[in-house]
Amino acid sequence: MGVQLDHPLHAAVALPLLAALIVFPFVVLAIDEPFYVVLASRILIFALVATSLNLLVGFGGMVSFGHAAFLGAGAYVVAILMQHGVASAWIAWPAAVAVAALAALAIGAVCLRTRGVYFIMITLAFAQMVYFVFVSLKAYGGDDGLSLASRSVVAPGIDLNSDTLFYYVVLAFASTGFFLFARLVNSRFGRVLQGIRENETRMEALGYAVHRYKLGAFVLAGATAGLGGALLVNQNELASPGTLSWTQSGMLLTMVILGGVGYLWGGVMGAAALLLMEELLAAYTIHWQLGLGLVLLAVVLFAPNGLATLARAAGPGGRDG
């Protein structure tokens, strides 16, 4: 199997999907199932975050086991600002992104000096540090998390308490984010990043500032996860240490691997598949984790490159993007 550097975003796939997502709330509200608007927002948020992790793992070859740190940092920034009376999304969300980006810059600068399995472990170590920092901040809820008084305010008098309005905000961010991600991986930056994934030494020899490219990707992914955190905390109206825990990092990594590492749609498909599977199985049995475990195991053993490859194999063109 050759390495594929082109990851075109086909309008014929993306636009109908976007259209379907735009009409989605009308459909479920028409059949009086408002819960699915909430579920869809959740899936979109995780699709965005998982895609950002896919940029690291799949396109940069950096297996981060600490991505939850940035997700949680974004969530806590919004919640803490809210506690101090700053409810405006225009201030809180950029702040969340900025803090997550700064955290990623600092953590990435240290972690990227290591490789392979050591990189997995050092990102885990830093994420755990962030976790325990927030657990110790009793003023901001400690073990217990910090509840939001309400969702962020986008304009005087307009907050996001309507689930449908919030869904569209999430959809706007997730689709824009995904579009930019698709542009990025096909840009020069994306090519260089994939080159580094394939052979770091050779790229170094060719004169690329490898460390800077990797750090750039790390910060970008961290900032995107921070945005995801800002959205997630609005969805849950709660910032909790659980968002920062290593199991959350593991869940994000599971989404990426399940969806397809290094495939454009990998993060999106993984997030959707995992969360829908959870919902579907949970409706029938309280032991849904058993089913989830069996499905994940089957994916590893029989679809080694994730779900995105299954969809791809269904097309007669095979591996063409």
Binding site: T254, G293, L296, V300, P304
Partner: peptide, 18 residues
């Protein structure tokens, strides 16, 4: 390592639920 992480994570879920 990624496949190992996913597969053994799946085993962990299966063990817990069993």
């Amino acid at each position: 390592h990624l496949s190992q992480v996913l597969a053994t994570f799946a085993l962990l879920l299966i063990a817990n639920e069993s």
